[in-house]
Design a binder for these strands. Structure first.
Length: 705
RNA sequence: GGCGAGGUAGCUCAGCUGGCUAGAGCGCAGCACUCAUAAUGCUGAGGUCGGGGGUUCGAGCCCCCCCCUCGCUACCA
């Protein structure tokens, strides 16, 4: 009786193309896992799709002067086609903008609503009429009612440490525009996650300690034990799934509610197209659910989404969330904004028919326990020294010998030597060995074992030396038969990892490709009398110039690519951030310059007091990674400015430099330091911050006009 | 800053609840072989396990301090 599995890979966010970091993080491991399960004859559905809502899409659309719909169509198609060409074996690659997803998400939301799982808070929230948006707590400041601190935040006063709500503040002001926010009625639906703490302690902290990866378990445990808070499941936004309730006009579902439900919608669509019952895959307790994600997605798949499923009541929960760490490239983090990446669609264009090479290399370096590193030299070495020399070469040896010695016909086994028997005995241990590794998400080791099968073959030929005993055709025949059996088993065992290569082996041996995994536990796959089809070389050497070209391409900053800071732009935390904050400190590039803002008159400009100042002293602000405390000579005074530039400048390097200062910006207390003004900076094409300073030194206090 | 995960041979990584001379693949050196894409097989040289203390008969694995990397989170007008 086959077991039922539902397997998901994180939905990639539709605002940029896919690179090898995505593949190594969430797609290749899942694909190997799924292909293995299918070979075992299990009943498995593997779903994925584009994640297409969220503020990051609308921001990108604005920047490119187009519509959100155009953005998501563009990237959905690029990603879908790249996945197909690369050979990720989704049963369906869906998208969250489909109608069925809207229905599914709304139905789940309604169910939670009807069950009373939400705390509906109709509150008056501060609304910034200048920025025309509701303000998150942190974006409101005012006077603390307890200690009188004038610079308390909407959620907390840092001076006296008391927790606040924005409406507690006296004289509130928006930190977005500086204007006085008005209270506007808004209603939101909160999921009281704290109600589920006990359950999570039981379900994860107790039960998953030995089965979940340490990185996953550790992060969940720290979240759960740190205490969970109610999280709003709705947002005041215009790009998303409408909240299906009266009085919720203009509100959409929170992306972390909507996006994971995309797995369910995709399954429904697949079931509809294939005459299946989707509920078997999501509601039947004997179904196992696996989410493959990158490490930045852990808490959402392990805590928030399971709470939603649990609150709903009818759904199964993930058996495991085998999150991977990150992949680096040539010693540096992958970065879309700096174009520091190997793009999947470009690889597929530039290395035609080499999908399995990339699968092999990435499979060998999957960041299973820690961040790992892709280099082109390593890619070349693994191709030339492993795929070509060990795997390809082994297959090619009998591929030639069988024609030399037996006209391409598979000869019968003669009497077996003890050595023959030991080789066959070893051969048939591999299916279980490799299968166990796959089941434990140790894909790297599993792939290494597949290579060991080829090594076994090479050693067998070297030890038996059939080319030296041409006068003993029966013995040569036995050796040929056994060598071909090894290739036969290899055609099954390599299938989850190198599907195209496995197909070539099947063609060589006239196998129909229907053999199950367990059939590799015997060594009789290749039948006596079969005519072998001579095949071309499986892998070819990759020369230095090809590799150097790729390395060069990386170092040229060609600035053609879209903005995106995240390595794992899967179900993405940058959406989440964009919905709650406004920190678009993103690098800009040639193709996405921010459009001009609306016109102002001279009076507006003349209100700004911009002048040149010199940095007299600079030091890091304690307990803040990004802040520098600068002492400036402004010509009119010596003052302190706190600036979020610590990641771009070392304090000692900027002392003495002239900078441009917005001098009459209202003072603000940041981390307990009063900051009087704002340093003007610009981002260059590499995402690095630059000061603005006069081309020749000028007097401090010189005004800019 | 808080939390989580890591820092092991030139490179990429294994090392389970502490226990014999710390492992694998690649690279490197030597030897053998020639059916094979100068491929393969055998042998070998490489590590004071991030640094410093401590617990223990015994620590890469446990405890304390420090340094570095990545993620989550806070800070960024």
């Amino acid at each position: 009786m086959p077991k039922r599995y539902t397997v998901t890979s994180a939905l990639p966010y539709a605002n940029g193309p896919l690179h090898i970091g995505h593949i190594a993080g969430a797609y290749l491991p899942a694909d190997i896992f799924v292909r293995y399960l299918r070979l075992r004859g299990e009943d498995v559905v593997y779903v994925c799709g584009s994640d297409e809502y969220g503020a990051a899409i609308t921001i990108k659309a604005k920047k490119e002067g187009t519509t959100p719909k155009a953005i998501i169509d563009k990237y959905h198609n690029i990603m879908k086609s790249a996945f197909e060409r690369f050979g990720i074996a989704f049963d369906i690659y869906h998208r969250t903008s489909e109608q069925i997803h809207t229905e599914t998400s709304q139905a789940i939301f309604l169910r939670l609503h009807e069950k009373g799982e939400f705390e509906v808070l109709e509150s008056k929230q501060y609304f910034d009429e200048v920025a025309t948006q509701f303000l998150a707590d942190r974006y409101i400041m005012g006077t603390c009612p307890k200690c009188g601190n004038e610079n308390a935040y909407g959620d907390q006063c840092e001076k006296c440490g008391s927790s606040l709500s924005p409406t507690d503040l006296i004289n509130p002001r928006s930190t977005l525009s500086g204007s006085k926010p008005v209270l506007k009625k808004t209603k939101h639906w909160y999921l009281p996650m704290n109600k589920y703490e006990d359950w999570l302690k039981e379900w994860i902290v107790k039960e998953k300690q030995n089965t979940w990866k340490t990185n996953v378990y550790g992060q969940c445990k720290s979240w759960i034990e740190g205490g969970l808070q109610a999280r709003s499941m709705t947002r005041d936004l215009d790009w998303g799934i409408p909240v299906p309730l009266e009085g919720a006009e203009g509100k959409v579902l929170y992306v972390w509610l909507d996006a994971p439900i995309g797995y369910i919608s995709a399954t429904r669509e697949w079931a509809k197209q294939n005459g299946k019952n989707w509920e078997d895959y999501w509601k039947s307790p004997d179904t196992e659910l696996y989410h493959f994600v990158g490490k930045d997605n852990i808490v959402f798949h392990c805590i928030i989404f399971p709470i939603i499923l649990k609150a709903h009541g009818a759904f199964i929960l993930p058996t495991n969330v085998p999150a991977n760490e990150f992949l680096n490239l040539e010693g540096d983090k992958l970065s879309t904004s700096r174009n520091w990446a190997v793009w999947l669609h470009e690889y597929l264009d530039e290395f035609p028919d080499k999908q399995d090479v990339l699968r092999y290399v990435l499979g060998s370096i999957l960041p299973e326990t820690k961040d790992s590193e892709f280099t082109w030299k390593d890619y070349q070495a693994r191709n030339n020294n492993e795929l070509v020399a060990i795997f390809g070469n082994f297959v090619n040896r009998p591929n030639n010998l069988i024609f030399k010695y037996n006209n391409g016909i598979v000869p019968p086994l003669g009497e077996l030597t003890e050595y023959d028997k030991s080789v066959l005995a070893e051969l048939i241990t591999y299916p279980d060995k490799i299968g166990d590794l796959i089941k434990n998400f140790r894909f790297r080791d599993a792939l290494a074992e597949v290579m060991n099968v080829a090594r076994l073959g090479n050693k067998y030929l070297a030890d038996t030396e059939p080319w030296k005993i041409k006068d003993n055709p029966e013995r040569v025949g036995t050796i040929m038969n056994i060598s071909l059996q090894i290739i036969g088993n290899l055609s099954i065992l390599s299938k989850p990892f190198l599907p195209r290569t496995a197909e070539k082996l099947e063609k060589m041996l006239s196998l129909d490709g229907k053999a199950s995994w367990d059939e590799a536990k015997k060594a009789d796959l290749v039948k006596v009398g079969t005519t072998i089809t001579k095949i071309e070389l499986l892998f070819e050497k990759i020369e230095d110039d090809v590799i150097e070209k790729q390395i060069q391409k990386l170092t040229i900053n060609n600035k053609q690519l879209p903005i995106n800071n995240n390595q794992e732009t899967t179900i993405s935390n940058n959406i989440k951030q964009s919905q709650t904050t406004n920190n678009q400190q993103q690098p800009t590039n040639n193709q996405s310059v921010v459009p001009q803002k609306e016109l102002i008159n001279y009076d507006d400009f003349s209100k700004l007091d911009i002048r040149i100042a010199t940095i007299l002293a600079a030091e890091k602000v304690a307990k803040a990674d990004k802040l520098l405390k600068l002492t400036l000579d402004t010509g009119i005074d010596t003052r302190i400015v706190v600036s979020g530039i610590a990641e771009h400048f070392k304090p000692e390097e900027i002392i003495g430099k002239q900078i441009t200062l917005l001098a009459n910006l209202a003072p603000r207390v940041i981390r307990g330091i009063e900051s009087k003004g704002m340093i003007l900076t610009a981002l260059d094409g590499n995402g690095k911050l630059r000061f603005l300073h006069p081309s020749e030194a000028v007097m401090n206090g010189a005004t800019v006009s």
